[in-house]
Design a protein around this nucleic acid. Structure first.
Lengths: 183, 183
DNA sequence: TTCGTTAGTAAACAATTTGTTCGGAGAATG
DNA sequence: CATTCTCCGAACAAATTGTTTACTAACGAA
């Protein structure tokens, strides 16, 4: 890809991230993004059809980056998950998230986290499905899955909002305690 | 309050609820609400300054209605909560939510649930704080509170999305199992 | 019922925002 | 060097917002 394209795309992403930390998605205008990114109006629209699509692509890029390992191993062999305990898996994931916290803060802890959380939970559901023993028995599986997934997502949001003060290991072990995961 | 005001306000709320079930908040225009509610443009703006404020007031009204009992008892005497077990309290709450599910569906299960959930969790946090034994020991209290609150909110969302197929009693008891509440 | 007050309406309005189109300037690639 | 691609700013139509106008109809107290 042309360096200019990459540069413009990145400038727009950065500007958008920066703005998301300050105000709600709905109240950010395309013009503000353009000014902040210091690109031309035509350039913005040649990259992204709408503001919605910008958000969507930013989430996609982020996930492709953060979950590249998870998704890879899933694709290559279905049972790779069981080679690693849930605790290790989640810890690993939290490290990735922490490394990207400057990019994530705007998306996850702002007031516009809806779309991001939606994506996030979809991926998490895949992860947790590899660990059937995390689903409390005697409870409708869908409800149990919904519980572990959204609990983890909300724990991560809380963690980020608190500035990642706990270590990934701490948060992961606390989380497993909370969902009463058999150790 | 003037009957005409009530009628207009209600017509706008109903129209908005109806639209929220079909499309995202961001993509609903004031004109659409006006047309659906069959009121004049001036009327809308004399009731609500902006679309954001409309959403906010609708949430407030909903909460004032659903949580009127909870908030009353809290105001009257601080230790009233302990007179009722957490299970009963949550069951009671779920009945209220179920009764209002026609109004809630658009707010809670659509793609615009962010603001509603924010309010919802604030109230839930108050409720759960009355039951300190629901917070797992050995875990930062803020994280534990965040966990029970957001878990319950997400369980309710799941429940509504599934058409309230479980009874309030079932959901409440499942939920207490999930958070390993000492019975 | 009458009468002042209040809320309703439609239409027109400026201001913002959106998304597109144009021609020209300047990198990238070969 | 030449071609192709991207960026830019300016100008544009269209949609949306929020306000103002003058007029009508419903309310509620006397």
């Amino acid at each position: 890809m042309d360096r200019r394209q990459q540069k413009s795309r990145q400038a727009i992403f950065s500007a958008f991230t920066h703005l998301l930390e300050q105000k709600h998605f709905n109240h950010i205008t395309v013009q503000e993004i353009i000014d902040e990114a210091n690109v031309g109006r035509t350039t913005f629209y040649s990259h992204f059809e709408t503001k919605d699509i910008l958000l969507k692509e930013m989430c996609s890029d982020m996930f492709a980056h953060i979950f590249s390992h998870e998704l890879h191993s899933e694709a290559s062999h279905d049972f790779s998950a069981s080679s690693q305990g849930l605790g290790e898996k989640l810890t690993h994931l939290l490290y990735h998230l922490k490394d990207n916290r400057s990019n994530l803060r705007g998306l996850l802890t702002g007031d516009s986290s809806e779309l991001f959380l939606q994506y996030f939970k979809e991926v998490l559901a895949q992860v947790f499905k590899s660990y059937p023993d995390c689903l409390t028995i005697g409870i409708p599986p869908e409800l149990a899955l919904n519980h572990v997934v959204s609990s983890f997502a909300e724990a991560v949001r809380w963690w980020m909002q608190a500035g990642c003060s706990l270590t990934p290991e701490e948060l992961a072990s606390y989380y497993l305690l909370l969902i009463a995961y058999p150790s």
